[in-house]
Simulated scan of single mutants.
Amino acid sequence: MPDRRDQDAIARALALGVLDGAALGDRLVVRARHGDGARDALGTLSARSPSAVTIDTRRGPVQVPLADVVAAKPVPPPPAPRQRQR
């Protein structure tokens, strides 16, 4: 049975594969280590370099170092805005 470190390494490898295969403009969520915890960036992939990806979120662009990535996956488009009730 794989231990926790093996599972983390597998999840990280899968996440880096998702980021490598994603096209600019794809909608993703990326989880990265941040201090003692983790932080998520949800939005569209706007840039990629050998060491980082940039995710355009509702709050602005977030640069995520690949060394800190622990998980990533594609997500569907956001739901359409609701009609206002009168």
Rank of each mutant, 00 (worst) to 15 (best):
L42I: 15
V18D: 03
V70W: 12
D3H: 14
T54N: 07
R12I: 15
L16C: 08
D8R: 06
L16N: 09
G17E: 09
A38W: 13
G60Q: 06
S51F: 01
A15F: 04
A71P: 01
T44S: 08
Q83N: 14
V64D: 06
P79Y: 06
L42W: 11
L45H: 10
G37R: 00
V75S: 07
D56A: 13
G60I: 09
L28G: 10
P81A: 04
A71F: 02
K73V: 12
Q63N: 10
L28I: 10
A9Y: 14
A71H: 02
G21P: 00
R82D: 15
P61L: 00
D6N: 09
Q83C: 12
P65C: 04
P77V: 05
V69Y: 07
P77W: 02
A9E: 15
A23G: 12
R12W: 13
L16K: 06
R27T: 09
R59T: 12
R12D: 13
A47T: 09
A23K: 11
V69L: 03
G37N: 01
A13V: 06
D20N: 06
I55W: 01
R33E: 12
P81W: 08
P50T: 00
A32C: 09
L16Y: 10
T44W: 04
A71T: 05
R5K: 10
D6F: 11
L28Q: 07
G21Y: 00
V64N: 05
R58S: 13
P61D: 02
V69R: 01
D20V: 03
I55N: 01
R4E: 10
P74W: 08
R59M: 08
R27P: 08
L28S: 11
